[in-house]
């Protein structure tokens, strides 16, 4: 176990060294929602007022847009693994004694950290520039974000497991991100979703993430009040992880960019 932890530490440090050389995608996915927040704040304020919800609009803008843009990082998680196929380094890793579970988990730690950083920046910027007030428990908010980020990382690994080519993976991830964001109430408040979407929305992790964040921010919820949202997000993370473990064939040749 100690040996595995030591190897995991080396792999996380290595992965960070690789990723920090190109943080432009993360930067874009962090700046873009801030720009959209500025544009959409009045619209969200009007939408919330129309449905009788109190607030400045920042509650929906920050929760919805941070959830939506975090979902675009799913393809980035899959890319972490496809990249190793493009560089032939996946085979190189596989020729070492490192267990595949340790390899995958260690490599996934860095995108998890980047997702958490993205949420932190967006929520902080929301508070600083758009008047967001977190009425509830910060711990509850952190737990919602952490579990949702875990869902997304697991989904990214699942994408790597089931797709044979990098193009398949990025296309599927982007379509999934927009669909889940729409259904989950990240684009418009959940109360404004069409009637047919209401029963479908809970089948997406984004629904529980937006709902959990809104509960904490707007109604002052604590951990106990968002227990259902946390449980749902944990269940999604467990489901995606299990599917990834079952479907991942470590020695399957993937087609990356070369």
């Amino acid at each position: 176990m100690r040996r595995e932890l030591s190897v995991a530490g080396v792999l996380v440090a290595h992965e960070w060294r690789v990723q920090r050389r190109d943080l432009v995608p993360q930067l874009i996915l962090t700046v873009m929602p801030l720009v959209l927040m500025a544009f959409l704040l009045p619209t969200y304020q009007a939408a919330m007022a129309a449905t009788g919800e109190p607030g400045t609009g920042a509650e929906q803008a920050v929760a919805g847009l941070s959830v939506m843009f975090s979902m675009f990082l799913v393809s980035h998680v899959g890319m972490v693994f496809f990249r190793d196929h493009g560089w032939n380094t996946w085979n190189r890793f596989r020729a070492t004694p490192v267990p595949v579970g340790v390899l995958v988990l260690s490599k996934a730690v860095v995108p998890l950290g980047l997702l958490l950083a993205q949420f932190t920046v967006l929520i902080s910027a929301g508070a600083l520039f758009f008047g967001l007030r977190v009425k509830g428990s910060l711990a509850a908010l952190a737990l919602v974000v952490l579990l949702f980020a875990a869902c997304l990382v697991a989904l990214g690994v699942l994408g790597f497991a089931v797709c044979r080519t990098v193009v398949q993976m990025t296309s599927a991830a982007n379509i999934l991100a927009i669909t889940m964001a729409g259904l989950g109430g990240a684009l418009v408040p959940q109360s404004l979703l069409p009637a047919w979407a209401a029963p479908v929305a809970p089948a997406t992790p984004s629904y529980w993430a937006v709902r959990g964040m809104r509960e904490v921010v707007s109604t002052g919820a604590g951990v106990a009040e968002v227990a259902a949202e946390l449980a749902a997000l944990a269940a999604f993370a467990a489901l995606f992880s299990t599917l990834a473990v079952v479907l991942l064939k470590p020695d399957q040749r993937k087609i990356s960019w070369s």
């Binding site: 690789v18 085979n91 020729a95």
Partner: peptide, 13 residues
């Protein structure tokens, strides 16, 4: 220690 035929390095490092 295995150096397979295809070069396997991390180009950005």
């Amino acid at each position: 220690g295995y150096a397979e035929q295809d070069i396997a390095v991390f180009p950005t490092l």
